[in-house]
Simulated assay, not measured.
Amino acid sequence: MFDSPDELMRRIHADIMDGYDEELEMELEDRNMDEQTETLLNDVARAAEKEARRTYFRELFRLQAELVKLQDWVVATGHKVVIVFEGRDAAGKGGAIKRITQRLNPRVCRVAALPAPNDRERTQWYFQRYAAHLPAAGEMVLFDRSWYNRAGVERVMGFCTDEQYEEFFRSVPEFEKMLVRSGIQLIKYWFSISDEEQHLRFLGRIHDPLKQWKLSPMDLESRRRWELYTQAKETMLERTHIPESPWWVVQADDKKKARLNCIHHLLQQMPYREVERPAITLPERVRHEGYRRHQVPGEIYVPKVY
């Protein structure tokens, strides 16, 4: 799978450093990289890699500015959007969702990442707990995994019966058509990674103490059942790719390119336009002659460790 142990470790190291880049990216509020950031990147990357990162950040900021325009248009028009993110473990769904929502208003664009159903939810209509998270007018909801759990992990791990599995495929096209008829735009993304790339990312998580929490026993078992997941994915795409809500496959072996391509494609799915905002004037603060600020007790301040 890899040419040598040295090549394997180089790839693992590169994946860990990419994760650190993600954290830098989430903290970076200024669109112009400052001298300190330049020094950091010089320390961790060769010149070509540094230029690639610059290009990535530049495109990401540009696309995120367009996402803000999209958000304003969604609010102004009362549009309703559901975006489904599916894919294998470590395929990069969460990273793409973070970059989409990073600059947006969480009251407008929110993420639904549901845990495994509890005992009560297992007795409900299968789609019931997902329906509770659907958007109202002027909202976007991103599902980090969705009702397609039944077609994937539940099928592969034996958490549903054959009858439940077949009923899902009978019901899901009707469920999604009903959503679309109600005025909800439904967009579905499958993040596709290779066997080698998932193997690499899992090793990266094992070697990175900040990411080991991402590896659950279920994730590890999914490696062993790679082919069963492949079969389940192929069946899912074949039986649920309908005109009202088609699947879109994001090639995700390169995480940064996958994020940019997904955001670019998402922006093309809606006829948004820039909504004119009223001019904002910061008002003068009202001051009262008799007001005196009370001293805050020193013991309740957080210590200045840094």
Rank of each mutant, 00 (worst) to 15 (best):
R259C: 09
F191K: 02
E121F: 07
G290K: 13
L60P: 07
E29N: 13
W73K: 08
R110E: 04
V75A: 08
R103N: 05
V74W: 00
L142H: 03
C160S: 13
D21E: 08
A96V: 15
D219L: 11
H199I: 04
A90I: 06
E27Y: 04
L282G: 06
E284Q: 13
V82L: 05
P106I: 02
C109V: 09
K211Q: 05
E244F: 09
D144M: 10
W147F: 06
L28M: 15
E38N: 10
L67P: 00
A132F: 04
D162E: 15
E23R: 09
V44I: 15
G138P: 02
V296W: 07
Q128Y: 15
W190E: 00
N105V: 00
I300M: 15
I97G: 02
R99H: 12
T39H: 03
A91W: 04
R223G: 04
R273Q: 11
W147L: 05
G94P: 11
G290L: 08
T161V: 12
D18M: 15
I97C: 07
M9S: 08
V153K: 02
E197D: 01
A52I: 03
R170Q: 14
D43M: 15
E227P: 03
A90M: 04
S222M: 02
Q36R: 13
A90R: 01
V172P: 01
Q71H: 07
W190A: 06
S245H: 00
E27M: 02
P271M: 12
R58N: 13
V84Q: 00
V141S: 02
R239Q: 10
L60Q: 12
W147D: 00
K98E: 05
A132M: 12
F57M: 14
Q251P: 09
E66F: 06
M218H: 09
V74R: 03
P246V: 10
M236D: 04
L63C: 10
K304Q: 07
L104A: 02
W125H: 14
V44H: 14
R225G: 03
K177L: 10
L134R: 00
G94D: 06
G158F: 14
L260E: 05
R224V: 13
K233S: 02
R46H: 10
R181L: 12
